[in-house]
């Protein structure tokens, strides 16, 4: 998605090495997806669900 849209950045976080981030985002299982520090999805997601969540996260902030 970061390749498809210049406004999007994507970071993969290795959870065991960054316990402070795990605590901050309350990661209880992996994969966990955090969009804009607010929207979260737990578990692997189908592409359309993931993309829709990214678009919706932007709308929520308007």
């Amino acid at each position: 998605m970061a390749i498809a849209n210049p406004h999007i950045t994507a970071t993969v976080v290795e959870a065991t090495e960054f316990p402070d981030l795990v605590r901050r985002y309350q990661v209880t299982g992996v994969p966990k997806i955090v969009i804009n520090d607010s929207t979260t999805l737990l578990g692997a997601q189908p592409e359309d669900v993931f993309v829709s969540a990214v678009v919706a996260a932007q709308d929520q902030e308007r």
Partner: peptide, 19 residues
């Protein structure tokens, strides 16, 4: 998906926690 993502016009961060 690419069409949908074209609607994203503000800075958006995605973090994926993995092991």
């Amino acid at each position: 998906s690419v069409d949908k993502l074209a609607h994203v016009t503000k800075p958006t961060t995605i973090q994926v926690f993995s092991t």
